[in-house]
Nucleic acid binder design. Structure first.
Ligand SMILES: [Zn+2]
Ligand SMILES: [Zn+2]
Ligand SMILES: [Zn+2]
Ligand SMILES: [Zn+2]
Lengths: 137, 137
DNA sequence: ATAAACCTTAGAGTTAACACTAAGGTCAAG
DNA sequence: CTTGACCTTAGTGTTAACTCTAAGGTTTAT
């Protein structure tokens, strides 16, 4: 299977596949006489792993670690894998908390603004951003 | 007030202040005889506006829009400002939803893994990432 | 008068995950 | 036998919001 075919199968771009190879996430495949990459089932499995790991929020760097562990399972423990997962979940939770603060502040701002088409000289949102005490702590 | 002093007052870097000026978020100040920037209260107010807008999640590009509206309030309406705010809140909400899906998937993965220090050959997390049906849809 | 601390500009580097471009070689069909 | 679809590499561009570097001029204190 050449790169275009594999890319279509897994619904990724050929650029992405070459990028993953360069980043060590996808094994370098054999080449045919003219230098074209020849992929097999192993590579498709790797790409599906990458896809699923991306779908749960892991970064490519984290996925590289998971792939390495998966490749040499005997040398690694469940603890390691679970730690990676929990650490990632913690990061995600922190980011969610930050965004929820944003959401709450934006809601508060929007709620106070009349939203009319009249000139904005009295706009409570602008006032809140100008004044020190515009937003409830 | 020179740039270092102002930066200290608002707890930002001098680089950031020059960057904001370049991006049109901070008014270009007068220069003294040797070319040093001379800031006044107006600039500090602008920076506080920027700071508060950042604190509720606006990007610099969005802040530039808000500052422009704030500068020419008569030409703009409450509706415009409220729309910006609600649109931003919508984006934030979408991102939160995505991250919450990540969080749920990661929780599910972590829950199933024993987390022991035994070899990872049986690890349910790795299995889930390998198998098509590893994660509940 | 000299060292430390400040200021200036222009431009490059950072992070993530690719997308895009150029310049060229290869392969299948008609 | 040539067109079009595919493949190769190397290198640049993208986005956001700065940070860092280099190479130099200024101010302040001793
Ligand atoms: Zn209003
Ligand atoms: Zn308003
Ligand atoms: Zn286990
Ligand atoms: Zn496990």
């Amino acid at each position: 299977m050449r790169i275009g075919e594999l890319a279509k199968q897994v619904d990724m771009s050929t650029d992405a596949l070459r990028y993953y190879e360069q980043q060590g996430l996808l094994s370098a495949p054999l080449r045919n006489a003219s230098g074209y990459r020849q992929y097999g089932r192993k590579h498709m499995a790797q790409l599906r792993f990458i896809r699923r790991a991306k779908d749960v929020g892991f970064s490519l760097e984290e996925i590289a670690e998971l792939l390495k562990i998966n490749f040499e399972k005997e040398q690694h423990s469940c603890q390691e894998v679970k730690d990676l997962t929990l650490k990632k979940r913690e990061l995600v939770a922190e980011r969610i908390a930050e965004l929820q603060r944003f959401h709450a502040s934006l809601s508060q701002l929007a709620e106070q603004c009349c939203g009319s088409s009249a000139p904005a000289q009295h706009c409570s949102i602008l006032t809140a951003l100008e004044d020190i005490d515009g937003l409830t702590q």
